[in-house]
């Protein structure tokens, strides 16, 4: 018997179930997974999801700027970087390389990030109003390292893609994508630690700053 068989047999004997999982049992759990019920959650005023998202993002330590359209994003990013005395060079998701970065005076390379990149610009699959969270899916043109390695993470977010909670985010993903990507990363503000004397310090291993440019 393999370790797997031994463990599964011990589980079944502990639970007082006979033999191995029969078709009926497997069907029962498959049915539950297919029904995929949503649990209870805290209520919040969901009339203005964008406002809620912005408010919660700021609470998490992010900064947010709203612009009218996607075309205005590069100028907004340039303004933010200059105002914060940050480098105007960096790395951008290949998915966003078509935006007019150069015209805004920015020199971004479209690729995954390495340890030297100081600014990383990503999009977001969607965002969650309840907690002010960005949802990023990894793929060839949306590499995960861009939101992780640089000291400054700038996220470009379509206001129309802000959903109420994580459950709605999963539903949106299921309706638009086939299966899960390698990594779904929920990002809620800059990285932090409180491991020394419970003192919160912003900027642990990941970005020191998260700036969201929300368009639309």
């Amino acid at each position: 018997m393999s370790a797997r068989d031994n463990i599964l047999a011990r589980i079944r004997s502990g639970l007082g179930l006979p033999g191995t999982a029969a078709g009926a049992e497997r069907a029962q759990i498959a049915d539950y997974i297919a029904r995929n019920p949503r649990g209870p959650r805290p209520s919040f005023d969901a009339t203005d999801l964008v406002a809620r998202f912005c408010e919660r993002s700021v609470k998490l330590g992010s900064t947010v700027e709203r612009v009218a359209s996607l075309a205005e994003v590069p100028q907004a990013v340039a303004r933010y970087l200059k105002a914060s005395a940050l480098p105007v060079t960096g790395v951008v998701w290949p998915a966003l390389q078509a935006l007019s970065w150069q015209e805004a005076g920015l020199s971004f390379q479209a690729r995954e990030a390495n340890g030297l990149d100081l600014v990383g610009v990503t999009g977001a699959f969607c965002a969650i109003a309840e907690t002010g969270t960005l949802m990023l899916l990894s793929a060839a043109d949306t590499p995960a390292t861009v939101s992780l390695l640089p000291e400054t993470h700038i996220a470009v977010l379509d206001a129309a893609r802000i959903v109420a909670g994580m459950e709605e985010a999963w539903a949106l993903m299921t309706s638009e994508r086939e299966g899960l990507p390698r990594a779904v990363n929920f990002v809620s503000g800059p990285s932090r630690t409180a491991d020394i004397e419970q003192t919160i310090v912003i900027g642990a291993h990941g970005p020191y700053r998260v700036h969201v440019v929300c368009h639309g």
Binding site: L180, N185, R192
Partner: peptide, 17 residues
């Protein structure tokens, strides 16, 4: 700050992972 849902190794055309 981070919640990561990880499913399998890097996919065919992925640049990282």
């Amino acid at each position: 700050n981070y919640v990561s849902v990880l499913t399998g190794p890097r996919r065919d055309h992925d640049r990282d992972g």
